[in-house]
Design a protein around this nucleic acid. Sequence first.
DNA 1: CACAATCAAAAAATCGATATTTAAGTTGAC
DNA 2: GTCAACTTAAATATCGATTTTTTGATTGTG
Lengths: 223, 223
Amino acid sequence: MTKSATLASEAYGRLRSDIIDGAIKPGAKLKIRTICDQYGIGASPVREALNRLASEGLLDHRDQRGFRVHSVTLQDLDELILARCWANEVGLRNSIRSGGLAWEEGVTAALQRLEAIPRYLSDDTTERNPAWEQAHGAFHAALVAASGSSWINDFCTQLYVAAQRYRHAARTVPRAGRNEQDEHRAIAQAAIARRENEAVELLMEHFRLTARLVRAALRQDGM
Amino acid sequence: MTKSATLASEAYGRLRSDIIDGAIKPGAKLKIRTICDQYGIGASPVREALNRLASEGLLDHRDQRGFRVHSVTLQDLDELILARCWANEVGLRNSIRSGGLAWEEGVTAALQRLEAIPRYLSDDTTERNPAWEQAHGAFHAALVAASGSSWINDFCTQLYVAAQRYRHAARTVPRAGRNEQDEHRAIAQAAIARRENEAVELLMEHFRLTARLVRAALRQDGM
DNA sequence: CACAATCAAAAAATCGATATTTAAGTTGAC
DNA sequence: GTCAACTTAAATATCGATTTTTTGATTGTG
């Protein structure tokens, strides 16, 4: 399934998933020895994986004191959303201005794939569908793909990952009659039609709505 | 001087400096064994350092094929400047709007420190002064310190480091009657006086001017 | 009772050796 | 002469053991 060329990369992938999914809880300490035992991998590869994750902001690292999962707080959420809105606004505006046919096709294709996949595995919204999450990330990446700067694109995906962690950290996010599919379609249509301000506004609202729901859920969980 | 708690962090710091300074050339391959011999450090810490640097975009890494310094190209420079302008624009605008006394003091202090340090060690602009470079980075960080999002701040410093590498890669950057000190002071004054648009415009021009000089120098060096 | 100093267990960091993989150079067939 | 298959040297990746540091508990002291 996940066939990485090196054990370090495999450990990186698995840890990353576990952190994003919330299987490893925010604030939790990652003891190297424990991970080695669980994954059946030596310390060196695990260590490399942890170092990479720390550079990406998923983990905190202090010399001689090990690694722990970056904690989730309401303030961090605000800071995250701020950065996310900024990066995606820049990325989307530039893509709309200078994106060519390839960009349009990318957005359309990503949207179709997203709509073809069920959001949850079962009906009761408890079991997330990894395939959907994958397609969702690809959709948001496609929107800003023609930003003109790979730095911006990388930032967007990095922020997307961080945000995903928050969504999953909030145990019970109320769906509140929300229809994400409609939002996605509206954003994509406005973008491809080159209605810049409308597209940006829709996308920002998309982020802010998610943020509001997550914030409420976090408060309820006493955080 | 550079007293790191762990060998991995020390290797990270030294490699980072060498890469930014251009002592290790863009595109060069980093053989782990060689680094171990040079630094007198084992493979594990070196490996960790390399992994961190790769996550930050200073190195390229492919499984089983080692690490090499991310190459410098004219296109990459363009992409870098674009991202840098956007990130710093939003950082500065937010700081000017919501920055308090602490922010003002930070900018003022950083400027004073910068002006007190000579740009070059000798008169002929060949030998850069590390202390100045340090203060220069601190100044630019201070400008955006009150952006309201640590993500944005981190991105700005990351982009600053990447840009520094380009400045150093261009062997002979003509000074062309430029007075950086004046530029810095003008930017700081406009920012603190809350003249938002003026400050942003000055900062952007500051970046673009550097970019033009570097681009010209790179072309001359046949790149 | 608070506080410092000491000690022991746990965890992080590091090293040296080994196993795998890639890259390069050589040979041989067509 | 070209290209493929083989061989060898170099480099990456990994493991297991050792060293160093931190943490938490315990003990003794003011």
